[in-house]
Design a protein around this nucleic acid. Structure first.
Lengths: 203, 203
DNA sequence: TAGAATCCGGACCCTGGGTCCGATTCAACG
DNA sequence: CGTTGAATCGGACCCAGGGTCCGGATTCTA
């Protein structure tokens, strides 16, 4: 309910200011949980009341940031060219989708982390997760010989969880390239499993 | 550092009382985050000071509970009979290990949830995670034709994350049996992927 | 049983998300 | 422009909950 656009220009100006400030803070600070709402408000030159009226709560702010960043990727996925776009054959599109998710999380580590683990309930209730999941599920369903596409979609997405990505990139210093390769390898492994692929590959 | 055993009997009695009370509370309450430390202390008939001295902090308490529950499973894994024990061939052991993890999380949903998502840092720094991961990694390494066993171990374990399990079991009402089957299917899929399996299966 | 070491427990502190309401700014209208 | 009512601002305030402190009770040792 606090998602309404306001007609007043100070309101929209402040909204932008908050978004920008939060963005900067999450980029700068080490851990997402030591970016407090008070920090954001102060950095934006705005009172806490304004902040909370504009975004409802912390999760709302995170969501707004996240979705703004995600927007271009959704464009590419829904109306873009292959391999991300809908015209791509499932075998190519699934790895492309997961690679996109991975890259997104690599580019927005702190933010994704804050949104996925911040106490605001399980990430599986989030709208954007459902979106990815149902898309992935639908694409998987078009691959013959694959069962349980619902679970498979969950399991594949789980391999790109923000805290795992953060751990690999931050703690274990796995370079971006290698990580993408590993994920791609894993994904194609899942897609080309079972007796069907074995047979078709042989003939 | 507050993990030392005490020689005084009131200390150990209280420690047990706290453990039992916490166990009961986590089993009863809906969500793990509305079991507060004060609740636990009260339920155990103990002051908060006692509670914190015995376990250091909330994460310490969770860890103690978790590891107590995990103990028998580790027994089975390290010295038990196949398919969980070390004598099992890798192809059987990997699914068995993941199935054990899944069942454990199904049986201890609230607790696992509290430990994995509770703000106490990423779950990937936890000792028990490293233990599972390095074991799984080692077993995967014995499977010919599989590369990136480090990442693969992470990815497979990610499919058993507590909040995913909770979501599937709680929200989507997936029955235990079905979930185990889906995971098993997914795991064997990962194991039997690639050209090698196709070839050996054909000959 | 005295003395010291340890432990108990609940009052207390502090951080951080979220609310409230008087003051202020805005947009529409005369 | 000046007025006016409504929407917004912003920082003081509230509250929950994790974590600390220390006077007093309990337990071990000699």
């Amino acid at each position: 309910m606090p998602e309404r656009q306001s007609s007043r220009k100070d309101a929209v100006r402040n909204r932008e200011a908050v978004l920008a400030a939060a963005d900067a803070l999450f980029a700068r600070r080490e851990s997402p949980e030591d970016v407090t709402m008070a920090d954001v408000a102060a950095a934006a030159g705005v009172g806490k009341g304004t902040l909370f009226r504009a975004f409802g709560d912390r999760a709302g702010l995170l969501r707004a940031l996240y979705e703004a960043r995600l927007e271009p990727i959704w464009q590419a996925v829904e109306t873009g060219p292959p391999p991300l776009g809908p015209a791509a054959p499932p075998h190519d599109r699934v790895p492309a989708l997961l690679d996109a998710v991975l890259c997104f999380k690599l580019d927005n580590r702190r933010l994704a982390l804050a949104l996925e683990e911040g106490g605001s309930g399980s990430p599986y209730r989030a709208e954007h997760y459902k979106r990815w999941h149902s898309l992935l599920r639908a694409v998987l369903e078009q691959i013959p010989g694959l069962t349980d596409s619902d679970f498979t979609a969950h399991a594949l997405l789980a391999a790109t969880r923000a805290d795992l990505v953060e751990h690999l990139a931050g703690e274990e210093r796995v370079p971006r390239k290698r990580m993408r390769a590993q994920l791609a390898n894993f994904v194609t492994g899942v897609l080309t499993s079972g007796p069907l692929q074995g047979l078709t590959a042989e003939e």
